[in-house]
């Protein structure tokens, strides 16, 4: 290691990507994950990092319309992609889903919550009439150590109901 020129090996990759509607041009090391780029290079810290192994869902973002674990995507891979983070949801105030999270008592320490909200948003978009068992299945990649699972399921159901009745 000592003989290697670390700075040369950290030669950056140039990446252009769209985050929440804003274009960003970044130069990052090849191994930089999309998660770290969003948090450290772009400065949007609403997306959280826990396991960095794709197991907890704290880092959930939308990538070209589908949710992914941003810890398992390289920033370089996101070239030309559009990324949606938790910050994009509530530009005009809390969403119905976010309101229901609060009303249901689903928020404890809160650190998993941005990821939960993103995963729940994706679920409501793809299966607006999900039953509790389907909600649990779809959400089971999002860990909550405070274990607000029952409350989160209730929040998603309530939001689904609101969206259903407003359609």
């Amino acid at each position: 290691m000592s003989e290697r020129d670390v700075s040369r090996e950290l030669a950056p990759v140039k990446v252009t990507l769209d985050v929440n509607g804003t274009a960003h041009r970044l130069e990052v090391p090849a191994h930089r994950t999309l998660l770290d780029a969003i948090r450290d290079d772009i400065g949007l810290t609403g997306t959280k990092k826990c396991c960095a192994d794709g197991e907890c869902g704290a880092c959930t973002v939308f990538l070209d319309g589908r949710i992914v674990n941003s810890c398992l995507v390289l920033c370089a891979e996101a070239e030309g992609c559009s990324v949606g983070t938790i910050e994009s949801l509530s530009v005009g105030g809390l969403t119905d889903l976010q309101e229901e999270f609060l009303a249901a008592g689903a928020v404890q320490c809160g650190v998993c919550i941005p990821g939960q909200v993103m995963a729940a948003e994706a679920l409501l978009q793809t299966n607006p009439t999900a039953k509790p068992a389907e909600i649990r299945e779809a959400m089971s990649g999002n860990l909550c150590r405070c274990a607000g699972y029952e409350r989160i399921v209730a929040a998603i159901q309530a939001a689904a109901k609101r969206r259903g009745s407003s359609r």
Partner: peptide, 23 residues
């Protein structure tokens, strides 16, 4: 009363700063 969590809005929007979110 079922008062909603203080700091809840920050937590559902990602605005809450935990240690590693501080600059």
């Amino acid at each position: 009363r079922p008062v909603t969590r203080s700091g809840g809005a920050e937590r559902v929007t990602g605005a809450q700063s935990y240690l590693t979110d501080l600059v």
